[in-house]
Design a binder for these strands. Sequence first.
DNA 1: CAGGATCCCATCTGATACTG
DNA 2: CAGTATCAGATGGGATCCTG
Lengths: 113, 113
Amino acid sequence: MFDPMCPSSVLPFRIGDKWTGMVVRCLEQGPRRFGELRGPLRGVTSKVLSETLRAMERDGLIRRIAYPENPPRVEYDLTPLGRSLLPLLDAARAWSREHLPELLRARQAYDAD
Amino acid sequence: MFDPMCPSSVLPFRIGDKWTGMVVRCLEQGPRRFGELRGPLRGVTSKVLSETLRAMERDGLIRRIAYPENPPRVEYDLTPLGRSLLPLLDAARAWSREHLPELLRARQAYDAD
DNA sequence: CAGGATCCCATCTGATACTG
DNA sequence: CAGTATCAGATGGGATCCTG
């Protein structure tokens, strides 16, 4: 999941910052902990992930729930507003399936000159 | 059109680089010249615009047609691939209309603390 | 475990000046 | 007119180390 070589890096559109769209996908099925997000989001550092999550919380896309335990446990969950992005992500995914190969071909042809 | 204060700057998604989506919109109704793009895209410098256009041409989103005249005249036109992005832009616009106020409210509430 | 602090570099973007 | 060249600032993203 979210292999760094995945074609999403060449998509001509993006949801939020680099990792925002992937976070939405990761939370699609339910709440996840900080550490559970670091797995699928291969290569993200804790700094960048926490920044991403804070920005998303600020925009009301996710909710942060900290349990007063020790060791600490924190869960992130999509808000309805965050869920409203899912159709857009789906549309982007559909576009890719249908048109990304053509974009890549065009790029190759252009670079061939 | 494309006022720098326009809310698109806070959208949680983006098409390509900063100006790509706007270029697609500008070309929606037909081919436009380099100088005709600089008007609506307020604040873009010729350097950035030419870079954007070259990247889009590379990806097969637009076609560049240079007329061998003097003074030079160049037109840019959306390819079918470029046009295929329009539904995505529409979806983004629809999302904004429906959800952007909520996002901004969440942001304000967050910043109030 | 869930992060904060620091440092650093690449990229993006813009300002300004210049050219065929 | 349609760019290119050069420079500079801002931003994003990552590496590394540290802590309640």
